[in-house]
Design a binder for these strands. Sequence first.
DNA 1: CACCAGGCAAGTA
DNA 2: TACTTGCATGGT
Length: 220
Amino acid sequence: MNSIEDRLIKIFNTLLNAFGKRHWWPGDSPLEIIVGAVLTQNTSWKNVEKAINNLKRENLLTIDALYCSDLERLSSVIKPSGFFNIKAIRLKNLIKVLYEKYNASIENLKEIETDDLRKVLLGINGIGKETADSILLYALNKPVFVVDAYTKRLIKHHIPPLIADRPISGDSYDIIQRFFMEHLPLDVYIYNEFHALLVYLGQKYCKKSPDCEHCPIKGI
DNA sequence: CACCAGGCAAGTA
DNA sequence: TACTTGCATGGT
């Protein structure tokens, strides 16, 4: 009775019990979530919020406006989120696909089969696995498990060795994602809440001086 | 002052 | 396949 399935669900329930629902992803619309997913690449959410507020104030948070805005203006508006030159290009690349291939309709995107849509997103320069999966899960409600640095940390350090066959390193995204999805129900709610809880856990307990003693999932 | 944050792509070995 | 580096602001 100590299967991986049991342990994962126990970790999930323990985190949910300790922290409560995280209500991810913060954002008023699917488009805001999509834009936020790009802006938050290697960037604190606090800075992303400033950039998103700027976009709202400038009436740039629509597919049409983003598509039409010139690159220099866009990069200056999103400046607080850092990497603004490259992120402006990445947003443009993404919006261009939405606008030209999907009729500027996020509803059209939802019609596409998840695996195909993931490939489309990954084909866009600037959209990697984590950003693509965040969009799929949090903006489009597709059952895809999002893996981030905190998730890797959990696998690597906190619960050794959940994945015994190979060392966790740089390019283990797919392995870790498959691990979670094979041992959890294919469920949007669980994937949504689990990832958000892991981020919260990481931010609270796994900083520079980790507080493993008071970590709620110690020993699970 | 250094270091990091809800990554990614391009280059190198 | 597995590292390394550039990208940049704002908070600790």
